[in-house]
Amino acid sequence: MSDAPPTNAYEPPKVWTWNKESGGRFAAINRPIAGPTHEKDLPVGRHPMQLYSLATPNGVKATVMLEELLELGHKGAEYDGWLIKIDGEQFSSGFVEVNPNSKIPALMDRSGKEPIRVFESASILVYLAEKFGAFLPVDTKTRAECFSWLFWQMGSAPFLGGGFGHFYAYAPSKIEYAIDRYAMEVKRQLDVLDRRLGEVEYLSGGDYSIADIAVWPWYGALAKGLLYGAGEFLSVQDYKNVQRWTDAIAKRPAVQRGRMVNRTWGDPASQLHERHDAGDFQTRTQDKIGEPAKE
């Protein structure tokens, strides 16, 4: 094989400039600057927690956490789950005020004298765990392990989402080098996870925790072939310990509810576009209200 670069190899310019026509699924909304594109206030409901989100893996972390807290009887975790479509809604002035990075999920805790904003999914998990004293180990060793796996997920998921997912599913053309590079890294990550779960039931080494809540929406979905349709491509069935852990978490009632909130695709019975009351799961899913899906 020749080491010579292909004749159509891209040569970066000395100074990069933004090409609005660069292609890809999200080309219409991607931009190299921050800040709002339009003025629009966020809605505010009646509950202490106001969540602005979409049921992507990062969004599911927040809704699962809130539903798990409610399952334990923490009434202060009652929340309004507002749908934020990532078609430009994340650049409204109201949303940027809650999250200057314009990414879901974003949380406003209105339970005190002054509202507290929390953005970044791991930050939301830690904030809620500390506020309610749940799903965060107390002893130093297990707590440290929990944080290590929580931040492992935050550091690893960009390779899975922005790397592998982008080039495998969303890029305007298939680039063998990019797909191979990120597929190798994702399989390495799955092996890291599988080895750990061969040693322990849950990631911290203790009980189910925010580490599991963070990792499951990404790697659990990948293990079941639900992420990017890449299950067969990545041979996810080979990771037996990940499969066991994924199935166990999927059986939790709070997880089943949490993954429905702000969901706008799939089976209409699994879609609860917005959650404002615990009874909404029985009365407001898309199969019951008959409204077209919000895309």
Rank of each mutant, 00 (worst) to 15 (best):
R257G: 08
I33L: 10
P100A: 02
A157E: 14
I213A: 12
P43N: 00
R275P: 00
Q153Y: 00
A122I: 03
A27V: 12
V261P: 02
D238A: 15
I210W: 05
G133K: 10
G206T: 00
G225Q: 03
P217K: 11
M108F: 00
S2V: 06
K294T: 13
V192P: 01
A134Y: 04
H273Q: 07
Y202V: 02
L272G: 00
D87E: 14
A278E: 13
L69V: 01
P12G: 10
Y127T: 02
V236D: 05
V255H: 11
L72N: 00
P217D: 10
V261S: 03
N30A: 09
W18C: 04
T56M: 04
W216K: 13
V192T: 11
V215I: 14
K288W: 09
L54S: 07
C146E: 01
G231P: 08
S123N: 08
W82N: 02
M154G: 02
E67P: 04
M108I: 15
Q90R: 08
F119A: 04
S270C: 01
L272D: 00
E274N: 01
A62N: 06
V215C: 13
P13Y: 04
D280W: 05
Q282D: 15
P217H: 09
I33M: 09
L66G: 07
H273A: 09
A178G: 09
E78I: 02
W216Y: 15
E145N: 12
N58M: 04
R46T: 15
E97W: 03
P100F: 05
T142S: 04
I86C: 04
K131M: 05
I116H: 04
D3A: 13
R284C: 05
A254G: 15
F91I: 06
K113R: 01
L150G: 01
M184K: 15
A248N: 12
E67M: 04
E11Q: 15
G155E: 08
Q189Y: 15
S148N: 08
P137K: 10
Q243C: 06
S111N: 04
E68R: 11
E39F: 11
T56H: 02
K187D: 09
D267C: 06
M1L: 13
I210Y: 03
Y177I: 09
M65A: 10
A254I: 11
Y10D: 12
A157G: 01
G133F: 06
T285R: 13
K294V: 15
T246L: 02
R263V: 08
E89Y: 07
T140C: 07
